[in-house]
Design a protein around this nucleic acid. Structure first.
Lengths: 227, 227
DNA sequence: ACATACATGTCTGCAATATGACAGTCCGAC
DNA sequence: GTCGGACTGTCATATTGCAGACATGTATGT
């Protein structure tokens, strides 16, 4: 693949803001691309953690399974996000499952190459630290939600984040497309599928949202989805 | 304070393993010490995050309050652990409360000094990354526990970790001293004080543990405290 | 067009655990 | 040594939201 094309893939990651063109070229040389379609698994727990991934397009979920087959999703990631970061955090295996939720374009880089780059560029190291801090903050907020909020508050505030992150602002509200299945939302919010269904329909009844399998529309302002 | 003494304070942190004596001296120069007694608060949410802390002795808890006055403890830290790490992760305020649980000796270092040091020592950077990875793993496991385990499993497996981390191995089991209040355990496991009391007494009934306000004794092997 | 698998909608009962109340106990401060 | 506050032990009661059942709806491929 032409280096120019590779460069395109690496753009739009905040992490690489302010990097020299020379660095970016080096980055591009060490990167490989892949297209992954829905339901593909990028890695499993216990898989060797040698690679760090950059998500260029699509959505990825990071989740865990319990022994008795329950699922909990830790994060839903969109374009511009990094995953498989355990590779650069000194772990040699993954802890989670990474699965494609919407057809994705993923850049993969060997952890050694990335670490070499980090050594050369303190700026990059700083960005990485920021990113990790952000990830840590998000998961702490997740814990707080699980402990302090009830099921319908968790669902509502998830929808808030979902619309905020993935939605398009319209004159009269927001639109996200495609939408998730109720089961996916349940896994993200540690609730039951039936509860998600109920809350969703209540919100529609109150004319806050409108939804189908294909889309979620928020009528009006984001703060209507406050717990 | 003599640099030698300061050095003593900085020993026993895995993070500094393999650092050159010269580096260690530099570290020591930039470090200040403090003794904090039980119930003292080291920082609050929204406090400026300029300092990174090393816990030399005692215990610290990192926790959050909800609007309606509930508490959830994210971590209980013992000697050798780092906290306030948001300072080096690009956040300018803290998100949590850090409070002394058992009289503590704390080393504090300005984040700039620490970052300078990191730039000079790739080895330190690597250790820091490892530490952050470890922290991330712990909190992910916390989420998993909250979602997959029931109250009594959470309490039991917390006791497991508590004994493992802070206990002394005896011929016939383990001993931890001092013990926590039931409310503290409740906050750590997202359960109610009364539930903790009940589970604790059940375990005592089954002759797995023995406890009082002052100590917790595990009779026999750690794996008796498996969920 | 049909078959099949998957997703949604709705109800009902049940189990887990929080909450509130209150008595008894311990502990440190004075 | 005693007093007050905090911690522990044990109820009874309330509530939340999960689980199961099942009908309906929708997409996909042949």
């Amino acid at each position: 693949m032409a280096e120019k094309t590779k460069l395109w893939y690496l753009q739009n990651f905040n992490m690489f803001d302010g990097m020299s063109p020379k660095m970016m070229m080096e980055l591009a040389q060490n990167t490989s691309m892949q297209n992954n379609s829905k339901k593909e698994i990028i890695y499993f727990p216990e898989d060797a953690s040698n690679t760090i991934y950059f998500l260029k397009a699509g959505k990825i979920k990071i989740y865990r399974l319990s022994e008795d087959g329950k699922t909990t999703t830790l994060q839903l990631l969109g374009p511009g996000e990094i995953f498989g970061e355990s590779a650069i955090l000194g772990q040699d295996t993954h802890d989670n499952i990474a699965e494609v939720v919407e057809d994705a374009v993923v850049c993969a880089m060997d952890k050694r190459d990335f670490q070499d780059l980090m050594e050369k560029s303190p700026k990059l190291t700083l960005s990485v630290n920021k990113f990790i801090g952000w990830r840590l903050r998000k998961i702490q907020a997740h814990v707080e939600d699980l402990v302090f909020k009830n099921a319908s508050q968790r669902i509502t505030s998830f929808l808030h984040r979902y619309v905020e992150t993935f939605g398009k602002k319209m004159v009269d509200g927001w639109m996200v497309r495609p939408f998730l299945t109720h089961q996916e939302i349940a896994d993200l919010t540690a609730t039951a599928r039936q509860t998600v269904n109920q809350v969703l329909n209540e919100l529609a009844e109150q004319d806050v949202i409108k939804f189908s399998r294909r889309f979620l529309q928020l009528k009006g302002d984001l703060d209507q989805l406050e717990s």
